[in-house]
């Protein structure tokens, strides 16, 4: 492997390691066990959403609805819990909401042939409206069942349980995308849909599945968000939109350059959260974080532009 190839494949990952070492050296308390666990907990929400967006991108489709669908799922969970429905049922309803939104996106893209860039924006708007309809704009807040809150706030020893859930979801997503026939078919569909179809792959089914996985990821994130914050608000996942896309784009610059990949998205999310945490520990003011995130997005888009263009403009 040439040096150029190594830089192309592992450059961002190595930059992440340099950032990690930099923060260990200069950011007070960054390397403490409690803070590293804190970083991993914070990366959980973002990475699960990014996994979903990654599946959509692997199939060469965009899902710009995942943040709003996540908020809608959260509101559904919050509504049911606040009306004293058993929390396991509320979780099922929240996940079902995410899956339904993903299926809707899949239907719009594969049956009605609406470009995903537009159809998922439409779904995002519908989800946003439904979330406000359910809440009336007022967040569901309460001191809910501790067993439910344990999902977001609980710990096993010093380790937040949400980290364990995230690692499990990461493992499943990684295996599904790289080690299963379904994952290979989704990748083939994303790389050359016509060739994949001619070789007997159900490309429509792959796209529907990819978008549904994105919806499921939004539903899963909603469960952890609601359990972590003991509340559900109509735009509670709004901030994850930009960060989720940034994590995935950053992931496209490593391991399999210019291709969305689960491992890359996880490391991308980790870099973003690590940077955010490190800037706080270094004493940076709030606007520096937004500036840094913008720079990361621009840089990662510049590197991974080809695949993104294909996904965005395959109209």
């Amino acid at each position: 492997m040439t040096l150029k190839k190594i830089v192309e494949t592992y450059g961002t990952f190595l930059a992440g390691i340099v950032l990690f070492l930099f923060l260990i050296a200069f950011a007070p308390n960054f390397a403490s066990t409690a803070n590293l666990l804190n970083v991993l907990k914070q990366v959980s929400f973002l990475s699960i959403l990014a996994f979903g967006f990654t599946f959509a991108l692997i199939s060469s489709e965009l899902d710009l609805s995942f943040a709003n669908v996540c908020s809608l799922s959260a509101v559904v969970i919050g509504f049911l819990i606040s009306t004293e429905v058993a929390w396991p049922l509320a979780i099922v309803a929240g996940l079902a909401t995410g899956i339904a939104a993903g299926l809707l996106n899949g239907f719009l893209v594969t049956v009605l042939k609406v470009p995903s860039l537009i159809s998922t924006l439409g779904t995002a708007s519908v989800a946003n409206g439904l979330a406000f309809m359910i809440t009336g704009g007022v967040a569901f807040v309460g001191r809910w069942d501790p067993d439910f809150l344990y999902l977001g706030r609980g710990k096993i020893g010093p380790v937040p349980v949400i980290i364990l859930f995230t690692l499990a979801i990461f493992a499943v997503a990684l295996v599904l995308s790289t080690q299963t026939r379904t994952g290979v078919h989704i990748q083939a569909t994303g790389e050359n849909e016509e060739a994949a179809r001619r070789s007997g792959i159900n490309t429509r089914g792959c796209k529907v599945l990819a978008l549904t996985l994105s919806g499921l990821a939004a539903g899963l994130t909603a469960v952890f968000l609601v359990a972590n914050l003991s509340s559900a608000a109509p735009q509670m996942a709004g901030d994850f939109m930009l960060n989720g896309i940034a994590a995935t784009l950053l992931g496209m610059t490593m391991f399999t350059p210019a291709k969305a990949n689960i491992l890359g998205s996880f490391v991308g999310a980790l870099i973003i959260v690590m940077l955010s945490n490190g800037l706080v520990l270094l004493g940076a003011q709030y606007y520096i974080q937004d500036i840094m995130l913008g720079i990361i997005i621009i840089a990662s888009v510049a590197v991974s532009a080809s695949v993104l263009k294909r996904a965005a403009f395959a109209l």
Binding site: N228, A233, S276, N277, L281, G283
Partner: peptide
């Protein structure tokens, strides 16, 4: 005093993360 001003941009999870980060910072 040394001060650090953070803005949560109206996002619940961002606010929670920022509080956690400041606690870890000590």
């Amino acid at each position: 005093w040394t001060t650090q001003v953070l803005n949560s941009n109206g996002a619940l999870e961002t606010h929670a993360s920022q509080l956690d980060n400041l606690i870890q910072k000590g």
